[in-house]
């Protein structure tokens, strides 16, 4: 069917409105990804190689050397593997955070609980607070000499900020807390969207609260669970503030992005940092594709 003149004008107007973000996306996302990909095949050092990139690319091209360095170079490989291990362990905060968010949402969705609206607001507060400020605050909480956690544990002397395993535990705990508000709100919104008809039918069939939760609420929330999982894993793989602000470079908490930052910005080794960035992007894309691929097996769609 041929579009009317008015229709075409409306489309042009709409396109112009999204033009600015589109240009931004092309320049700052696609463009950055492209250059990062190209840099990963070079020994680019921004201080030394400051001429336009494509005019010097032949001089600084090293092929796959930087990728090889990530896995074999004495100065980098151990740190890279350690960063991968740390990042994977810290991803535990994603499922734990989702579980905690779901439980809190389920509790606060119960209108019989007094003050549930205030509780919702309180739980959501961390989501609107500065990440850096929160991390600094948590450093005080986990301080083993005068922190709240050790005080509550009757001064067991656990050195949260120094020990390589304990600092991961602290970060997971902190991230579960920090993500609780956002997760809770998403689940609450999902719960409010579930049609009452299902619950009324279940009541007629004599289902109890738990049965209703696991047979109706939980399955109906799987699209939200899926969304939170995707976003959480992507965010977790890109974690940086935990390493730098909370752990202040503690070896036990150095993540892949921290590695990229340290080698790229600190050592001007843009090639190595870009190679690690490209691999990280590939992993994120692969994990996301796999999640989408298998989502039809467990995500409920009405």
């Amino acid at each position: 069917m041929k579009r009317s003149k008015l229709d075409r004008k409306e489309h042009i107007a709409a396109f112009l409105f999204i033009l600015i973000p589109l240009i931004g996306f092309a320049l700052f996302t696609v463009g950055s990804m492209f250059f990062s990909f190209m840099y990963s095949f070079t020994k680019l050092n921004p201080i030394k190689h400051y001429d336009p990139f494509f005019s010097i690319i032949g001089d600084i091209w090293v092929g796959f050397d930087k990728y090889k360095d990530l896995f074999t170079h004495e100065l980098h490989s151990e740190r890279f593997f350690r960063a991968i291990g740390n990042t994977l362990v810290l991803l535990l905060s994603v499922p734990l955070g989702m579980l905690a968010g779901l439980l809190v949402a389920a509790l606060l969705n119960n209108r019989k609980i007094v003050g549930s609206k205030i509780m919702r607001m309180l739980f959501y507060l961390p989501a609107v607070s500065s990440a850096v400020a929160m991390n600094l605050l948590w450093r005080f909480v986990f301080n083993h000499e005068y922190g709240l956690i050790n005080m509550l544990l009757h001064n067991t002397g656990l050195k949260w900020l120094d020990d390589y395993a304990l600092i991961k535990t602290a970060i997971i705990f902190k991230n579960v807390w920090g993500g609780l508000g956002g997760t809770m709100i998403m689940y609450l919104a999902g719960m409010l969207n579930i049609s009452r008809d299902y619950y009324e039918a279940a009541d007629i069939d004599g289902a109890n609260g738990l049965q209703k939760f696991f047979r109706i609420t939980f399955p109906m929330l799987t699209p939200i669970t899926f969304y939170l999982l995707i976003v959480g894993v992507i965010g977790g793989l890109q974690s940086y503030v935990d390493s730098d602000v909370f752990a202040q470079g503690n070896v036990g908490a150095q993540t892949i992005v921290y590695f990229i930052w340290k080698r790229g910005i600190g050592e001007w080794n843009y090639g190595l940092a870009s190679a690690a960035s490209v691999l990280l992007s590939v992993v994120i894309m692969a994990v996301t594709i796999v999640q989408f691929r298998f989502s039809n097996r467990w995500v409920f769609e009405e």
């Binding site: 301080n143 000499e145 050195k159 900020l161 120094d162 020990d163 202040q248 503690n250």
Partner: peptide, 8 residues
């Protein structure tokens, strides 16, 4: 100790 220096 180093751990205490991480604390303060």
């Amino acid at each position: 100790a180093a751990a205490d220096q991480a604390s303060s």
